[in-house]
Design a protein around this nucleic acid. Structure first.
Lengths: 347, 347
DNA sequence: TTGAAAGCGCTAACAA
DNA sequence: TTGTTAGCGCTTTCAA
């Protein structure tokens, strides 16, 4: 009962042809109830389980979607994939999961893998949607795909995201309105994240619009995988005009920044404010709770999968879904401290 | 250049047989360098990408492993899957991801899906390893699999976990040593998690061994998906002898408990201590930081994948990996408060 | 070093 | 209602 069970064995046991077994298994054609009973018995007896590979080869449909994200270690992606998997599963689709680790070559090879497995479509978050070999390959492969989290600048691609630039603008503006003038940005590397670049643009125009000369912009770029923040923050903090607020391009970065500042003896938000971006659930549990922009990750995953499946069955056209963004207030954002910088700049 | 590119087109363009193309593509046999060059040119020109389905059908190998976890919303699983995917990818294996949402039927159907896709093996976390249709099915399917996080009571199955019972025992004992006598346990439903049941066993024997009569044990079972903790905690808190400490079977639960207690005006750890289990990274960033048992999730995923692949290639026998556990101290655990219960029990 | 041919497990005409 | 048959795209003897 262990060896290579095929539709053929079942047919033999039930005393019918393989075509009839196939029809019975897939309910894809007429089968008399006696025949059906015999076949079911044969299936049970033999322990037959249809081989999807055979079916896929014949039908040229895999009922599989590929999902590519930078890393599952950031809950924003884990939550999105969670939603994705649910939505796909509900429609009988299976998920092939690949992670890029924020590395462009890995993006490319991951997609190559998916394509060779003949996924019917993909949901993905790439480092840079405007400069992505991965996307080119996907385009020439001619399968539908939807970008998730990426800024959705391209018109020819389905996508779901929020207005990264606008959200960053709003959040940074709120800091300025609280009296902050020296606001540093801790940004994921632009090459690793176009979201980060967009958020930086929002940060810069907020400064500009509020008359904070461009010179005030301080951007520290860090890699997402083990960002060595402690020393970078220490540097910033001992400069004459140390920041009174930090705008971080992700919540994960914000958490690391808060830790680094705390280690240096700074109190958040009394001495310095820190805001993040993403709205991961645990941010609300931190102390101080994290002020941030919320992206509804699970919902985005759900939508991405549903829309992709609709596109696969040609029920829908390319769509850009820009969700409204929302700032979650949090204790990590406070008014600018009275005494400006610690010493030096007025002496 | 879009239509149904097969090895046959390449062969035609290059003027060779499909067998030769196959040999060239897979480097599975001798091919003269001129022929190889011609084939490579043909591949580039046509945009050919090998169809894995065909190959899989022929070779009866899919180079795919199935991964089943309860949910990616709990970082403990997301981190593990992250490690898994990396390790699998490095060895040329692909990951089919399925989530059960802690539901037994879903476990079963997920595995059925994987089996139909002819995964070569599986890594999974089931609700209850001792009472799992899913595992029975897997056994009779005859593919290797490794249990991850489950308590590893079965001798016939590879697994990686920590000593859940022992770890719970240690953690609860530490509370008792801090003077706590009324320690409640907030437990995930036993039917949804055998880890939870094990941890409960550890909790109970810690109480017993320290002479806290069994009557002291208060266990509140909650479901993992939207646990309505607030009201349950409120109940506990207004009883005569309210707990001075809570032992939660997961960090996610602990976070929810802390929130519920805070809402009720209790201060952690001054009024009441809360400890968790899992050691998710963000626990260290909470305030108060979470005292918990650390499971090295990513490492567990890495090991699970590597071991599974070794088993697939018959390089290794069934192995039980029990990792040493470690308690991460945290601010959420403090000494028992002086004044015993709020009112009532001494009046 | 190359090619012809069989066949992996399945579905879908088509004929009966 | 059922069976025969021709492949889906690929690998792999085997013979040349």
């Amino acid at each position: 009962m262990r060896e290579a069970l095929t539709i053929r064995e079942v047919a033999k046991i039930a005393g019918v042809s393989i075509a009839t077994v196939s029809r019975a298994v897939n309910e894809s054609g007429p089968v008399s109830s006696e025949t059906r009973a015999a076949i079911n018995r044969a299936i049970k007896q033999s322990g037959f389980r249809p081989n999807n590979i055979g079916r896929q080869l014949k039908t040229a449909r895999t009922e599989t979607i590929g999902v590519l994200v930078p890393s599952l270690k950031n809950p924003i992606f884990a939550d999105a994939v969670n939603g994705l998997e649910q939505a796909a599963g509900r429609q009988g689709y299976t998920v092939l999961l690949v992670a890029s680790g924020y590395r462009a070559e890995k993006e490319l090879s991951a997609i190559e893998t998916c394509l060779r497995s003949r996924v019917e479509g993909m949901v993905l978050t790439v480092a840079d949607e405007n400069n992505s070999r991965a996307l080119e390959v996907l385009n020439s492969a001619g399968i539908p795909y939807v970008l998730m989290f990426n800024p959705a600048k391209r018109r020819d691609v389905s996508s779901i995201s929020i207005d990264n630039r606008g959200a960053a603008y709003d959040l940074v503006s709120s800091l300025i309105e609280l009296g902050h003038e020296r606001i540093a940005m801790i940004a994921g590397r632009r090459s690793e994240s176009d979201r980060s670049a967009e958020r930086q643009a929002g940060y810069e125009s907020a400064l500009r619009d509020h008359g904070l000369s461009h010179a005030h912009a301080t951007v520290v770029e860090v890699g997402f995988e083990n960002p060595d923040l402690a020393s970078r923050i220490a540097d910033l903090e001992q400069r004459p005009g140390a920041p009174t607020a930090y705008f971080c391009s992700t919540d994960m970065l914000a958490m690391a920044v808060i830790r680094a500042l705390t280690t240096l003896g700074r109190r958040v938000p009394d001495d310095v404010s820190v805001v993040g971006f993403d709205g991961i659930a645990i941010g609300a549990y931190l102390a101080p709770s994290l002020c941030t922009v919320v992206q509804p990750a699970e919902t985005m995953g759900l939508w991405a999968a549903s829309h992709l499946l609709a596109r696969i069955s040609n029920d829908e056209a390319i769509t850009h879904q820009i969700l409204p963004h929302r700032i979650r207030p949090g204790e990590s954002r406070g008014p600018a401290p009275r005494a400006s910088a610690p010493g030096k700049d007025n002496g």
